[in-house]
């Protein structure tokens, strides 16, 4: 391994040990919400279907609805699990100065953390899928579908990371950035089909949503896993467009922010 790869590898390892050191935190902050969310939705839809296995609601049987929400949980874990919580804090507390001295840059450090986190999420997701399959709540799809879905989810997670990174960078100007992140989370949950399938939404509204990145974050990948999606190419294209856009924005904001930061001598 060359020196640069070694730096990345070391940082990833440190990130792992951090996550396991605060394992209770990791569980409560990342996995807990996903599980509770699924638990509520499972109960809610059981009550709505009232034990009837045959009726269709917005085109879903009960089993399909549960499958939808299981994949919603998995997609949530992999594609939207990462929160760049400490990024803004580091900026606000002036810890960023350390990175200006290090031979390892700020974005590299946080990206390494993101990569480490994604490994853990994929692992947790695999275990979750396995458990749910053993409980016969879920029929495991073909390996090809899993691979396609996982790849797409990881691609979406890059978008999500770039977005989180952007809100973090606003810490240069804002006292608190968590509010922005919560707004994003609420909007994404509602508009991406994570709470209920988009098929429930008024048609006009969904048509409008298709012009935003939201449906491609949760609804699309769920449909991939369920084997009902064949426009993967265009979804990749749209996500790629947004990723590039966010990357440019981050680049610009960082440049502006760091100038402000060094000028203020914080």
């Amino acid at each position: 391994m060359n020196a640069s790869a070694l730096k990345w590898w070391e940082t990833i390892q440190i990130a792992w040990s951090k996550y396991t050191a605060y394992r209770l935190n990791f569980f409560l902050q990342v996995l807990g919400p996903a599980f509770v969310f699924f638990f509520i939705k499972y109960n809610l839809w059981s009550a709505i279907y009232g034990g009837d296995q045959d009726i269709l609601i917005a085109g879903y049987t009960f089993q399909q609805m549960i499958t939808y929400h299981i994949w919603a949980m998995i997609v949530g874990l992999i594609a939207q699990g990462h929160t760049a919580l400490n990024l803004a804090e580091e900026i606000r507390l002036g810890k960023i100065s350390t990175y200006l001295i290090y031979p390892f840059q700020f974005w590299e450090f946080h990206t390494a953390h993101f990569i480490a986190f994604q490994w853990l999420q994929v692992l947790t997701s695999a275990v979750t899928v396995l458990l749910l399959a053993l409980m016969s709540l879920l029929t495991v799809p073909s390996f090809a579908l899993i691979l396609t879905g996982l790849t797409y989810c990881l691609f979406v997670s890059v978008f999500w990371f770039a977005l989180q990174y952007l809100t973090g960078l606003l810490g240069f100007w804002l006292e608190e950035t968590w509010i922005l992140r919560v707004i994003l989370q609420i909007m994404t949950g509602f508009l991406s089909g994570a709470i209920i399938p988009l098929d429930f939404y008024p048609e006009k509204f969904v048509q409008f949503l298709n012009y935003t990145p939201f449906p491609y974050l949760t609804y699309f990948p769920i449909k991939i896993f369920m084997g009902e999606m064949n426009q993967i190419g265009s979804a990749y294209g749209i996500m790629a467009f947004w990723i590039v856009l966010l990357w440019l924005a981050n680049h610009l904001i960082w440049k502006k922010g760091i100038r402000l930061y060094t000028a203020a001598g914080m």
């Binding site: 209770l24 935190n25 409560l28 902050q29 807990g32």
Partner: peptide, 16 residues
Amino acid sequence: VTEGLGINFLRMQIQQ
């Protein structure tokens, strides 16, 4: 616990 932040998330889930 050493890091109380997670407890706040637990609290929010129970509220959910």
